[in-house]
Nucleic acid binder design. Structure first.
Length: 1101
RNA sequence: GCGGAUGUGGUGGAAUGGUAGACACGCUAGCCUUAGGAGCUAGUGGGGCAACCCGUGAAGGUUCGAGUCCUUUCAUCCGCACCA
């Protein structure tokens, strides 16, 4: 018999498939298309990983399956070649990165081919090929043209080990995600991509695509949209401002640095001497921020040509022409030398601090402001008295590493700046603090602190007050001067659900504690229902005018008989509790104050309850540590928390102490206060995102050069598109520098160039792009990989995109996946791609762990090398095993034993097939009735498998598809079955069963299937054969097992035909001996019959 | 803390609300032998001699019937995290 030898058949067929270009996708094809995409590999020196195999095999199966179904399938591959690991490898081995890449890519391609993966090899893309990165640079220039790529001097994340800047997404817990080095902050001029402009759409459009839940939620989480309000606080004074004066960032900085007087030129405004104006600066297209109030001291009007060349906050202009250009840049091209400008001389009278909050409803409870240490206003607002202390604090926070600052649970620290603002609702003073628990990078870098309703502010207030008291002594407590922080509750909690007709009353909740036994008194009202019953404290109404403590003492005595109790404390605010009164039988709303009592002694008198209350509850003592888990009423739980724990109440509720806003709840309160702020001209609704702009510069050699030229005269000038690509020069040394400058900067004859605009001397940008650049559009290039005219032909894009299914690792969810969606959306806005989203469906394969159930790593030595597995078992075994391991999207550990099990399966397939092939041919005898039944049974098994495999491939449940194969093989190889299959009269059955088996196995184990297919006498490839349709008629069972239950418990199995009627089934079931036993002496209340499945008798004794 | 997911034999894992544990690994016993990374047969959730009983993290609920649906809760994993 022909032996199964994978090392022989696999290379043979791989070569044949390659020669016949079996997997070439056709661009001009009337058939429907499918575009399957896997994340192209980074060709590291380690070679292919078993994780790649899992992903690539799964989509290979789907691609082959769709091809067999007659679709035009695109399943491409390429290499993501730029990046630091290759650069480091090259430096270490003293070879060019280009050479290292070429070598690694060759290894990858060999490995991919050895797995029998059906990629369209002619479409391979290489991101470090100038023919490819020419278009990466081209897309960058389009971004630049639209203002989505800009340069900014930013304190960026700097990895001191790899000596490069990093994107936010590459920093995990304060360390660089790739090398684990603690990240430092470094101030560098950077290229940045304005991904934040797409934040909303990146989140919103997730609704239009089919991504795994955990992928879209992770992206939404990362984008971190939040709705709230910006509120302006004027420091140390109030002034009626008439208008605003817009500033350049340079002037803004100057004033923030402490310059008190300045001038600004603007087109005429209605401001006169003595007016107050708000100074604003533009942050982005639709975002401005106020930063100070200024008093106009003098107003002059002059034509631009008469404006002097020297101006405050500016380098002096070299010429009249240069001055004009600059003004045009700022005020628009309608400006000429004759345009009249009004010059305002002013004096800064009060800095403005703008804060961002998601809780404008708590504004009245804001008792102080906090600025991040990096906030520009810190310098201007700090008073002389506090300067030394503030400086010291700023120094201290600067010296702390990012890692330390990111630790949670660290004690709150901060310093008062000496400055005061006013709360716009209450008019109370709000000391302004600097503290590092406020992040400069989020919102406006400043917050209004509401200690009563925010945990962090609460912790800060506690810590600062403590410090203050220790320093100043308790006598200060009485007067509580400036920096002492007041904790002012402005929200009453709500529990339960209003019914509209709720009967309102004032009430108390008495918590009685017995200090001797450490137990607390509870009333057990029976089983808890939706809004009544359960375990509660003592509750009761308050008579009009009655003292709360008196009322509580009365209720304690009435309901429990205890009279000797001592009042300890009460809650500051009541809880609005909506509940159902089981005593009065109506919906009640109680404004409940919590009161804590201690039991003095156990003296008890007779209880004195209302008629309605009698026998409704029992009194129980519960150990203190079980009280929280025992009380099961929302309102009572809140009361208990407020009494026992010192903490903020962060929930929403009814506003109090908020002036005109009292009584408003939740979202209504937020809206009302936001609107009021807007009307007052001191605030507005605002949306903020956690997502930051994408730091796009890398100070390294091995990346796409950023196609920009810096000219002394023209500034940053894009390299003209017809001069792309800007190729990487050959250099001797690839080492990164310590200065934050790319090694490219050292290559004088590359760097020095003439300006494309003015032909003057200029220098090239020496930063390169991050390795995420090339992968941000590669799926588009696959549709037209050799085009020299455009990045991809629009007709081809229209045919192939969007990608129907994109599979890749979870680790790319907030990196590559987000970046590529951003680029795609931009290209869509430019009319360059046909769809707003690149990928219709995104799935993620689970990680393959080492045999020891931990992540594979070289240092652990638990890495499985796919080459070795292919050598020992063959590619088909590896493919099939990785599909069989477990659910595709869940992580699972490698197991050699199970691999072996799959290998055994393939041997069994092979042996069975060879046996069937060698069996004697057909006889002329017509099949007997018995033979017909046998054939029906085998056909049924085959077609059931076919149906399941079809279903499982569509649903990416590859593990159960493989199980189905195994089951079928088990059925077919059963001694008796197999013997009959080999008989001459089974020749036809044998033939068609084997054909179908081979066809359905083809996507999974392409080599074995191909070999057997040819053994069956076929000359074309099995992979271009049509996918077999299952026949629903053949699947129908002639006999079904009916489960008979009595009261839901299985008591018998009976056999019946699918056509047996319900009545017949019931009769058959009742006749079964075992069922009879259970029905004896009982009455059948109900009979449930599920056709073809079950009969259930519901009986009563 | 927020968001997401997952809890089923000794193990990986199956189960459109209808016989829980398919398939595979491992294990036990036996057979066979052209000693192979074999193959074949039988068994393998727990308890019980048996009839039967119990069993899908826990507790409730809906249902004739729940691993599956609902509520509460616990545990584990992943992501984010002083994001105001």
């Amino acid at each position: 018999m022909k032996r199964y030898n994978p090392s022989e058949i696999e290379p043979k067929w791989q070569q044949r498939w390659d020669e016949t270009k079996l997997y070439a996708a056709r661009d001009d094809d009337p058939r429907d298309k499918f575009y399957y995409l896997v994340e192209f590999p980074y060709p590291s020196g380690d070679g292919l990983h078993v994780g790649h195999v899992r992903s690539y095999t799964a989509l290979d199966i789907m691609a082959r399956y769709k091809r067999m179904q007659g679709y035009n399938v695109l399943y491409p591959i390429g290499y993501d070649e730029f990046g630091l690991p290759t650069e480091n490898y090259a430096i270490k081995h003293k070879i060019a990165p280009q050479a290292a890449t070429a070598r690694n890519v060759a290894t990858f391609e060999r490995q991919l081919r050895a797995l029998g993966l059906g990629f369209d090899w002619d479409r391979q893309v290489h991101t470090s090929d100038p023919k490819y990165y020419r278009w990466t640079q081209w897309i960058f220039l389009q971004l630049y043209k639209r203002g989505l790529a800009y340069q900014a001097e930013l304190p960026i994340n700097w990895c001191p080990f790899e000596k490069t800047g990093l994107a936010n997404e590459e920093v995990v817990n304060g360390v660089h995600e790739r090398c684990g080095t603690p990240v430092e902050k470094k101030l560098l001029k950077q290229w940045v991509l304005r991904i934040t402009r797409y934040a909303d759409r990146l989140a919103e459009d997730l609704k239009t695509v089919d991504y795994l839940d955990r992928i879209s939620s992770q992206q939404i989480n990362w984008i971190g949209r939040s709705e709230g309000a910006e509120i302006e606080f004027t420091v140390g004074g109030e002034h009626e401002t008439k208008d605003s004066l817009k500033f350049t960032p340079e002037l803004t900085r100057l004033i923030q640095a402490g310059t008190k007087t300045s001038t600004i030129r603007l087109e005429p405004k209605q401001l006169v001497e003595g007016d107050y104006a708000k100074l604003i600066t533009r942050i982005s297209k639709d975002e401005v921020q106020a930063f100070a109030v200024a008093k106009i001291t003098r107003v002059e009007t002059a034509k631009l040509k008469d404006v002097p060349l020297e101006q405050e906050g500016h380098e002096p202009y070299a010429s009249q022409d240069e001055k004009l250009k600059d003004f045009q840049k700022f005020y628009g091209t309608t400006v000429t030398d004759e345009t009249e400008f009004t010059t305002y001389h002013f004096e800064v009278v009060a800095p403005i601090v703008t804060v961002y909050t998601t809780r404008p409803d708590t504004l009245a409870g804001a008792t102080f402001l906090v600025l991040a240490p990096e906030h520009a206003a810190v310098r201007t607002i700090t008073t002389a008295d506090q300067r030394a202390e503030v400086e010291a604090y700023l120094k201290k926070t600067q010296s702390e590493s990012e890692v330390a600052r990111q630790e949670t649970d660290r004690p709150k620290t901060g310093v008062w700046t000496g400055a005061i603002a006013k709360n716009p609702i209450t008019g109370r003073d709000m000391p302004i603090w600097v503290a590092d628990y406020v992040l400069a990078s989020y919102g406006t870098g400043a917050i209004m602190a509401v200690p009563a309703h925010d945990e962090r502010d609460f912790a800060f207030a506690k810590a600062m007050n403590q410090q203050f008291l220790e320093a100043e002594g308790p006598e200060y407590l009485a007067s509580r001067p400036a920096p002492y922080i007041t904790i002012a509750p402005v929200i009453e909690p709500i529990a339960g659900t209003p019914h509209g007709d709720d009967h309102e009353k004032e009430a108390i909740v008495a918590v009685v504690h017995n200090p001797k036994t450490n137990e607390t008194l509870l009333l057990d009202w029976g089983p808890r229902h939706s809004n009544w019953g359960g375990m509660l404290f003592i509750g009761g109404g308050v008579e009009p005018g009655e003292d709360l403590v008196k009322a509580a003492e009365r209720e304690i005595a009435e309901e429990t008989g205890y009279t000797r109790v001592k009042f300890v404390r009460q809650t500051e605010v009541p809880v609005n509790n909506y509940y159902y009164s089981n005593v009065k039988h109506r919906h009640d709303k109680a404004r409940m104050y919590g009161l804590l009592f201690e039991l003095v002694d156990e003296t008890q008198v007779a209880t004195n309850m209302d008629e309605g209350e009698k026998n409704k509850f029992t009194v129980t003592w519960v150990p203190d540590d079980e009280v929280f888990s025992t009380v099961n009423d929302g309102g009572h739980e809140i009361i208990y928390r407020m009494l026992m724990r010192e903490e903020a109440f962060p929930g929403e509720g009814v506003l109090i102490h908020s002036g005109q806003f009292d009584g408003l709840v939740g979202i209504e309160a937020k809206r009302a206060i936001t609107k009021w702020l807007f009307d007052q001209g001191i605030g507005r609704g605002a949306t903020k995102y956690k997502l930051r702009d994408w730091i796009f510069s890398r100070q390294h050699y091995w990346g796409e050069p950023i196609p920009i030229v810096h000219c002394a005269v023209c500034g940053a000038v894009p390299v003209p598109e017809d001069r792309l690509p800007v190729e990487l020069p050959a250099v001797k040394s690839y080492e990164p520098t310590d200065t934050g400058e790319s090694p490219l900067a050292a290559i004088a004859d590359w760097v020095n160039i003439t300006c494309p605009q003015c032909d003057g001397p200029a220098k090239r940008e020496t930063d390169t792009m991050p390795n995420w650049a090339g992968s941000s559009w590669y799926w588009l290039r696959y549709t037209d990989p050799h085009n020299d005219m455009v990045f991809a032909d629009s007709a081809k894009l229209a045919y192939w995109t969007p990608v129907d299914l994109y599979n890749g690792g979870m680790e790319h969810t907030t990196l590559h996946l987000l970046y590529s969606r951003f680029w795609h959306k931009f290209l869509y806005d430019e009319g360059l791609v046909p769809t707003p989203e690149p990928y219709a469906r995104r799935r993620s394969h689970g990680m393959i762990l080492g045999p020891d159930n931990v992540k594979m790593s070289k240092s652990r030595g638990n890495v499985i090398n796919p080459d070795k597995v292919v050598d020992e078992y063959g590619a088909d075994t590896l493919r099939l095993y990785e599909m069989f391991m477990g659910p595709f999207d869940e992580q699972t550990a490698w197991s050699d034993e199970r691999l072996n099990g799959v290998s055994r399966f393939l041997y069994r397939v092979w042996t069975l097939a060879q046996d069937l092939l060698a069996a004697p041919g057909a006889t002329t005898a017509a099949p007997s009735g018995d033979q017909g039944a046998f054939e029906a049974e085998i056909d049924r098994a085959v077609h059931k498998t076919l149906k399941k495999v079809h279903h499982d491939i569509e649903g990416m449940q590859f593990n159960t598809a493989v199980s189905a194969f195994m089951e079928l093989i088990n059925t077919l190889t059963k001694a008796e079955t197999k013997a009959r299959l080999l008989l001459p009269e089974s020749a036809g059955l044998r033939q068609r069963s084997l054909r179908t088996l081979v066809l359905m196995l083809a996507p999974f184990a392409p080599h074995v299937a191909e070999e057997l297919w040819h053994d069956l006498g076929e000359s074309d490839s099995v992979h271009v054969a049509g996918w077999p349709q299952y026949d629903p008629e053949l699947i129908k069972d002639d006999i079904v097992t009916i489960v008979v239950q009595v009261n839901g418990k299985v008591r018998a199995n009976i056999l019946a035909t699918p056509e047996t009627t319900e009545a017949e089934l019931t009769e058959l079931a009742r006749a079964d001996a075992n069922v009879v036993k259970y029905l004896e002496g009982a009455t059948i209340v109900k009979t449930i019959v599920v056709p073809r499945k079950l009969v259930n008798f519901v009986v009563k004794p």
